[in-house]
Design a protein around this nucleic acid. Structure first.
Lengths: 338, 338
DNA sequence: CTGAAAGCGCTAACAG
DNA sequence: CTGTTAGCGCTTTCAG
């Protein structure tokens, strides 16, 4: 391994000067600078983060803390896309991204311990349960955090504007003439579930429509399969007075529900309009293709990275602590005029 | 920050002993061990990886090197699922996972430089281009590598058995009575493209069927949209003697192609059978649902982690350098008896 | 503008 | 079984 000392010797100066040169400090003679760069090039010098981190207490490492649940972890397209853009943006600022888990070498530990162990400069929180003890430890520490899925008190958050999205979906159905609109909700233990449902209630109230409990089903877990049961239950509950449209809490559920309805002999969208939320890849490939609400995941990841890095670097953050990213209605073929 | 010295003082022993205790070295008195653990608990001590890494030259960090192309990077379900299981398995062995990119702080650099900079103990290669100069640098260094998407000379590889998968798909179509089988191939610059195509050729030869150039289209990029052009081109090429079945290089293409065919008035599977490769989430939700070949991504990620860690720890690796994970035929509704 | 010296937190001989 | 000592590679005062 070639070190700063080797470079110093080769360039005929001291290690201190090499360090200064590499950190772009002012006060290094142009010629010296050039000699140092030439020497380091010649020797193939690469700085060592560990040594630097030890000396400066800054690792240039950002932790990402994902739900370990398969359905809502990094394997879910929603999160993997956020992670992708977060990671790229972090890189542009010189930060690397490392996964945080609950282990410390061979033994069980807390997320916080893991963060300390790795010395991350900040953490991205992407867990979908509203309140988890395990996450609590990092929240109440002085670790810099940004959350992209759940609102924690006093924690910077970058989330889609779920209320806006819900209203876009519902207004669209309303515009198509629907008045009997059912809702299959995401788990109400999640922000997504809560906010989309409360926007649904708000919408009904605004339009002077009554909230019909028969038109409501809550899934208990973020799992596509839950769509079957939810769709069936909805049909049973409301059989004597079926809704004409269904606002599904998220795309996976909408897709499965559509299939369930079709299997029961319903035509979509003629008999039943279905709208989703997320605009995940599958929604473009179903039959009919799914009308849905798009989340700008690239923007979420980017803004989360920007915010976290600002916090780390002590820069001013102009945006509100609860930053909302606008959503967009994607009209495809699963909704029809009544 | 509480250090090993604080713990030593509290426990009434030397830092060395604390270090030994934490590393589970033999030769620490039981009582001393307990005192140390109590002290560290009381003080809230967490070891510091950077210091340890500096002293031992081992970081317990594994790099993952993904294609930065959006379609084949971590945002693609195939890769995100591999990454997920890789990450979990690595964690079980005490390793953390960090993304590798082409930057070094603020300046452009090579993947290799980045690996050295972070001091990763090994790297997971998940790039789909057969030969990239940039990756070449890490391959020809003494960095430990495992690849999960491309075969590099002298590099341990964990990939699905594409030949087996292709044969499963084709034998199934054959069993259903199909003799005019077309192939929409993945880019032949990729291992997936090459191996699936050569298995297709092999299959035809085995069955005594002639390879008809009109029944072959190669997409140029891993992009779902390419399916439209490919399907159309296939139709044009083979209009006077249409195939009865189409083996698509991967699911995204199969899904888009199905939609294209349907738009042209073909019924699937009655007029045209379609089979895919990957068993990605969408394939269960199309109409008809897609018959396809499943890749065991969890196994890929796990085996890649195990192999890489064995290399790092100098353990014997029994498996062949080119390890293949069996695939599985998933029968759904896009293929029919002729 | 340059360099000597001390130290970041931990581990690894080597003695005791 | 325990402790002393000397680094790992880098940055940071502080003198020059």
């Amino acid at each position: 391994m070639v070190t700063i000392y080797d470079v110093a010797k080769e360039a005929g100066c001291s290690p201190t000067t090499v360090s200064k040169a590499f950190n772009n400090y002012s006060g290094v003679n142009n010629l010296t600078y050039k000699k140092i760069m030439d020497a380091s090039e010649k020797l193939g010098y690469t700085p060592n983060t560990n040594a630097r981190a030890l000396a400066t207490k800054k690792t240039w490492l950002l932790g990402v803390l994902f739900s370990e649940d398969v359905n809502t972890g990094i394997a879910h397209p929603h999160f993997s896309e956020i992670l992708q853009s977060f990671q790229v943006r972090a890189g542009e600022h010189g930060y690397d991204v490392v996964f945080v888990n609950k282990r410390l070498g061979n033994r069980e530990a807390s997320y916080l311990e893991h963060c300390i162990y790795r010395g991350v400069d900040g953490v991205l929180l992407a867990a979908n349960k509203i309140f988890t003890d395990e996450i609590q430890s990092v929240l109440s520490s002085d670790m810099k955090c940004v959350s992209v899925e759940t609102n924690y008190p006093d924690t910077h958050t970058v989330i889609s504007d779920y209320r806006m999205g819900s209203l876009q979906a519902l207004e669209y159905l309303y515009f198509l003439g629907h008045r009997k609109i059912a809702h299959i909700a995401c788990p109400l233990t999640s922000v997504a579930g809560q906010e989309r449902y409360s926007a649904y209630q708000e919408f009904l109230k605004t339009k002077g429509l009554e909230e019909n409990p028969k038109y409501f089903v809550e899934i208990k877990e973020f799992k596509a399969e839950e769509g079957v049961g939810a769709a069936t239950q909805l049909l049973q509950q409301a059989w004597d007075d079926l809704p004409t449209a269904i606002y599904c809490g998220y795309d996976d559920i909408a897709c499965v529900a559509m299939n369930t309805f079709k299997a029961q002999g319903f035509r979509i969208p003629e008999d039943l309009s279905v709208i989703g939320f997320d605009n995940v890849a599958i929604s473009g490939f179903t039959t009919p293709s799914l009308t849905t609400i798009e989340q700008d995941r690239a923007a979420i990841g980017q803004n989360a990275a920007d915010t976290l890095i600002k916090m780390i670097e002590g820069k001013a953050i102009e945006q509100p602590i609860d930053m909302r990213i606008p959503t967009k209605l994607i009209i495809r073929n699963s909704c029809a005029r009544i």
